[in-house]
């Protein structure tokens, strides 16, 4: 009560845009960290989904990104700040099925236009901000018991 409780854990990761061979490495690390911290399985899987979708979007559409993972009492926070083209129309991008993925990305099975919807559906709180020509900033919060 009153006193803010310290974070149990925090770590930052980097994602390189365009590199599909290592795509998924950051979300895999986040998942194993949360598991080791004893976070319940269903929460860990939610965090894995949201971080994976954000990671793939950085690899697909941005130059690079920093991912901040913070685990506090009752909460897992994942923040993804990228440098890249940004999103001109966030409402449109959030629509299921909307995608600007090119042929190369689609051939690997991406580009269904569902990634941002998954992020929204699997996080308890989701914020997205973007500036065209600068980059995109996602904030996802998942509550833990």
């Amino acid at each position: 009560m009153g006193e803010p409780k310290p974070n149990l854990y925090s770590e930052s990761f980097h994602i390189e845009g365009g590199n599909f061979n290592s795509a998924g490495i950051v979300s895999t690390s986040i998942k194993s960290i949360l598991k080791k911290l004893g976070i319940p399985g269903d929460i860990v899987r939610k965090a894995a989904i949201v971080s994976y979708e954000a990671e793939i979007n950085v690899v697909s559409y941005a130059k690079k990104a920093v991912v901040n993972l913070t685990v506090g009492p009752g909460v897992v926070r994942i923040e993804v700040i990228d440098e890249g083209q940004g999103i001109p129309n966030i409402d449109l991008a959030m629509q299921e099925g909307y995608s600007t993925a090119d042929q190369r990305i689609r051939e690997m099975g991406f580009g269904a236009g569902m990634g941002l919807c998954n992020i929204k559906n699997y996080s308890d709180d989701f914020h997205i901000e973007s500036e065209v020509g600068k980059g995109t900033h996602l904030k996802m919060t998942i509550q833990t018991p």
């Binding site: 599909f20 061979n21 795509a23 998924g24 979300s27 895999t28 399985g41 899987r45 989904i49 994976y52 979708e53 793939i56 690997m108 099975g109 991406f110 580009g111 269904a112 569902m114 990634g115 919807c117 998954n118 559906n121 699997y122």
Partner: peptide, 27 residues
């Protein structure tokens, strides 16, 4: 479609697909 599978499959499932690229392993 990887994000369809991400959104709709569950733990312990068998995933049936024609995708052969290494990204399927992360999913």
């Amino acid at each position: 479609l990887l994000s369809d599978v991400m959104g709709h499959s569950k733990e312990g499932y068998l995933w049936i697909t024609r995708q052969v690229h290494q990204n399927i392993v992360a999913v």
